[in-house]
Each structure stands twice: as structure tokens, then as C-alpha cells.
Design a binder for these strands. Structure first.
Lengths: 195, 195
DNA sequence: GCAATTATGTCAGCCATGTTGACGTATTTT
DNA sequence: AAAATACGTCAACATGGCTGACATAATTGC
């Protein structure tokens, strides 16, 4: 499960309006998976397996899938994908961010980012302005339109998290924060989450 | 950020041994992103923005990236990707799972799964056996080899989570569980996490 | 002031992982 | 015997990554 929890998009499936609020919507047959799952002995050598944190691993997988799916469905309506969302989000988060800085946050190549920026520039979700001091650098900003989209997407994901926070309580929310923070590598933790 | 937090693989980059334990490893220039980030005013209309849960959204994005990256690096050494990991994981989790049931959990098409199963069958990580009662159904099992790989991957991800749990405390770990559980859609929650 | 470096963009080709649609085949159900 | 189910496969296509090579403008360093 590098991937357990990873998964890219599912372009076709929940594009339009499919999927009951927040769910994956890919039922096939009402076969006995559920039963099988609950009865399933953990794989192999029981002793060694006990230290494996399968429950949190699976929770991350499914929670992340639903978390991204909720924005993916909106993005699909305008022909954008996750790559657009990531760029849009961080341009909103760091107004005036330079292209190179954005690449550094996203950890992708400029060749991957290029078409994404190009489409969002063309569709007027973002604008570029040369840096006053160093005119080689292109600073990126959201337009009104971009701001609206970014906030709509962030709002959807916020609602899902807020619902979970409300159900689990404030203490749980703090625990959620602390654990995730501990999972983030030093560099990103330092620059995004302090200490 | 459907995607904030999504991101597929980065085949090239941290494939072999690159990346300092658990980190993303894609530094470019020591530009002022960090400063920019901390100083950045939240985007637009401050009032409306207050209800947006940007911190947990970003935590999920970066934590998930590191969580998957830790297994991706191992997978890359044998030419497998996340798709292989997902299938491998759930075949291990539900020994004897039928192909259709696996599709139902993964939410992908059989055409997407086919090459993944084929490669893992050929390389002897999994085996198929016809169901005794209904010989149309192909039940899938891990081989010794597959069990070893699955456990190595799960161990890596478990260690990352265990480290975060240890640092955050048992209460935080429970909160983490409760919040993620609240984020998982009803169907998957029911069949994987009870109630 | 000229050379080197930096920031960005672009073209071309490749790979992994998804999608659809159409069809084939064995097996079970009706 | 016919219909439905479970699975497999072929073909075409999209997304979003990657690499390498090269171009251009602006800044920095000697």
C-alpha cells in the first residue's frame, strides 16, 4: 500500500453527479466481501503480523480516497484534474509564488506542471506577473475566478473534515493533527507546520 | 485539493535509494518559500476563509505523500507500482478473495486490474484457484513470495505510523482513528471498520 | 562588459494507470 | 435450452507523471 491510500483519479466513474454524497459508488454485486473481510484471518505468520498497523493503513486509504473524490467530482465538471487542483491550491495559499517555488512544493518537473499552468492561464483561473526585482521570475496569482474555484474545492473538503471532527470531538481532532504531523517528513513539516 | 493529497507516483525521482528516510527529496533552490508560506495571508475574503480547514487539508496531503512514498520506493525496485500494491494488499487481507470482489474494493475496472494480476501471477506473487462450489469464480491467494512482499510493504508503512503514534501519544492515536473513520463513506466504513 | 548561471518555457518521446466498448468462453441459474 | 454471471482479452484513448534537449531572457560574477 504505497498505494494503499494512493490511487490516482477515476476519470470516468464519479465524474458528473454519481456517487451518494461522499461515497465511492462502485458497487457491483452484493457478494460476501463484507463477511469475508470481517472473518479474514490476518495474513500469514500471526505473530509477526501483530505489529502491523493494518487498521490505520486502511483508514488512511479509504479516507483519502473519499477526501479527494469529493473535489475530483467538481474538478471533472470543468475538465480539470488533480494536477490542476494542487497548483490552484498552492497558488492560492502562497499568492505570488514563483513557478520554481511551486515546483519545489509539488515535487514534480516543470514539464509536468507546464500544461497545467497553461490551461489555467488560458481559462483565466490564474495570472502571471514578472517579479519587480528579478524579472526572470514569474509570480503566480489567482484571479477572482480562480479564487472562487479554489474556495469551492477547499470548502468541499473542509466540510468532510468538519463533519468528522464534529462526530469525533475536539480532542480527537487534536490527535488527528498530532499524528499526521508526525508522519510528515522534516522538510515539509518545518515549512508548513512549524517547529 | 482533491488532490491535495492525492498525487500519483513519482517513478523517476525517489526510486532507488534517494530521499532521506521518509522525506520527499525534491529540493531545488533554497528560495524563500518557507518564509512566504508562513507570512502568506490566507487567500481572499478573510471572513469566509476562516471556516476552511486548510491545516488538516495540508496535513493530509503531505502525510499521505510520505506514507505512500515509503512503499513506492520499495515497489519501484521490483518494477511494481501502486496498482500492484493495492491488489497485493487486499489479496493478503482477504485470502481467497474473488476477482470481482477485489474490483469492488478497489473501485477500478477489470480491464485495469487485468495486467496487474497477470504480472503478479507470472512473477509468482499470487496464485488463482477456482472456487470449489462455483468454478467460474477465481479465488486469489498470496504465495510465500507474495506474503513476504506484502508484509515488507505493510511493515514500512506501519513503522511510519508507529513513529507518529509514539510521538503523539495513545490518545492522539485514538483521535486519529476516530476522525479518519468519520471521513470514510458509509459503505466502506461499514464493511471495513464496523458499525 | 562578457561569460556563466538562473528562471522559465517548449518540443518530443516514453511509461503507468486509469477509462470505454466489444467480444469470447466457461459455468451456473432459471 | 436460454439467460445470466464471472472472468479474460483486445483495441483505442486520456491523464499525469518522467527524461532529455534546447531556447530565451535576465541576473550575477569576474
Amino acid at each position: 500500500m504505497a498505494d494503499i491510500i494512493a490511487k490516482t483519479r477515476r476519470p470516468g466513474a464519479p465524474s458528473g453527479l454519481a456517487a451518494r454524497a461522499g461515497e465511492s459508488s462502485c458497487e457491483r454485486t452484493p457478494t460476501g466481501v463484507t463477511r469475508a473481510l470481517n472473518d479474514a484471518p490476518l495474513p500469514g505468520r500471526a505473530a509477526a503480523d501483530k505489529t502491523l498497523l493494518r487498521r490505520p493503513i486502511e483508514l488512511l486509504f479509504f479516507a483519502y480516497r473519499d477526501f479527494t473524490g469529493i473535489a475530483d467530482r467538481k474538478l471533472a465538471t470543468i475538465g480539470f484534474g488533480r494536477a490542476h487542483h494542487r497548483a490552484l491550491y498552492f497558488i492560492g495559499r502562497v499568492p505570488g509564488i514563483a513557478v520554481g517555488e511551486l515546483l519545489d512544493i509539488l515535487c514534480i518537473t516543470k514539464q509536468s506542471l507546464a500544461p497545467v499552468l497553461r490551461e489555467m492561464l488560458r481559462a483565466r483561473y490564474i495570472v502571471q506577473r514578472a517579479d519587480a526585482a528579478d524579472r526572470r521570475r514569474r509570480r503566480l496569482f489567482l484571479t477572482e475566478r480562480g479564487l472562487d474555484l479554489e474556495r469551492e474545492l477547499t470548502r468541499r473538503q473542509s466540510r468532510l473534515i468538519a463533519k468528522a471532527f464534529a462526530a469525533a470531538g475536539a480532542d480527537a481532532a487534536r490527535g488527528f493533527d498530532a499524528v499526521l504531523r508526525g508522519m510528515v517528513g522534516g522538510r515539509d513539516r518545518r515549512r508548513f507546520f512549524g517547529q
